[in-house]
């Protein structure tokens, strides 16, 4: 580890969440834009965990209920995400099946697991190496924007395929739950303050070399 540099938190300096100006936190308000100042995102872990739990709660209906109902001339087919994937796999459209699996099933769950793990690390329950933590955090940020693929596909199909009695696509209740999962995980990722991870590292290091623990908001 590099020679220790002074940290903003130790100086009581906070970066404005809105404009980024570094100001002593005692001011409470950013002198430039007037928004509230915090050393760390307030109740970050609690919020993240709550949003993750909400996402998990919706994950079950998202996968159990049909996301899309296709009706072709008297033939009504309602399919869940998993059924759709299996259907593509059976028709030997493996790439599409894999894309669906990765984007719709794997990414949300991976994201949720990763965030839970990060929260655990930030609260000191697990002690991974900072390198891995960095990778995982980067990964969750990266994945976030791709998990909406399914919802996009459904909404585009619903908008395009409306041929009256011949063919119709209507969204199912699963789509709502799935959109909820995606939005909630995105909010969870947003509300997570990665600096808490590094704070925890500091505490761990301080435990090795005795130092007064930093107080944190």
């Amino acid at each position: 580890m590099n020679p220790r540099l002074p940290r903003a938190i130790d100086q009581g300096l906070a970066s404005c969440h809105v404009c980024g100006k570094v100001t002593p936190v005692v001011a409470h308000r950013c002198p430039r834009c007037g928004s509230a100042l915090h050393l760390r995102k307030p109740a970050s872990l609690k919020r993240t965990v709550a949003l993750l739990l909400a996402a998990l709660a919706l994950y079950a209906p998202a996968n159990m209920l049909p996301v899309m109902t296709i009706s072709e001339i008297g033939n009504v087919m309602a399919s869940t995400i998993l059924q759709g994937m299996v259907e593509f796999w059976r028709r030997e459209a493996y790439p599409i099946a894999i894309v669906i699996f990765v984007a719709s099933i794997m990414i949300p769950i991976v994201k949720i697991v990763a965030l839970v793990w990060l929260c655990a690390a930030a609260s000191g329950k697990v002690h991974p190496s900072p390198r891995i933590l960095g990778r995982i955090y980067w990964f969750t940020e990266l994945l976030g924007r791709w998990s909406m693929v399914d919802i996009f596909v459904v909404s585009i199909l619903v908008a395009l395929v409306q041929f009256g009695a011949y063919m119709n696509v209507t969204p199912g209740p699963g789509a709502l739950a799935f959109a909820g999962v995606v939005v909630l995980t995105m909010f969870a990722a947003m509300s997570f303050d990665p600096r808490l991870l590094w704070d925890r590292l500091e505490i761990l290091n301080a435990a090795k070399t005795p130092q007064p623990p930093p107080d944190r908001e």
Partner: peptide
Amino acid sequence: VWVVPILAVLIGGWLIYQ
């Protein structure tokens, strides 16, 4: 903030029940 997961559980549960 715990209202959010409670709501989510309620909505999800209702969807599944339906």
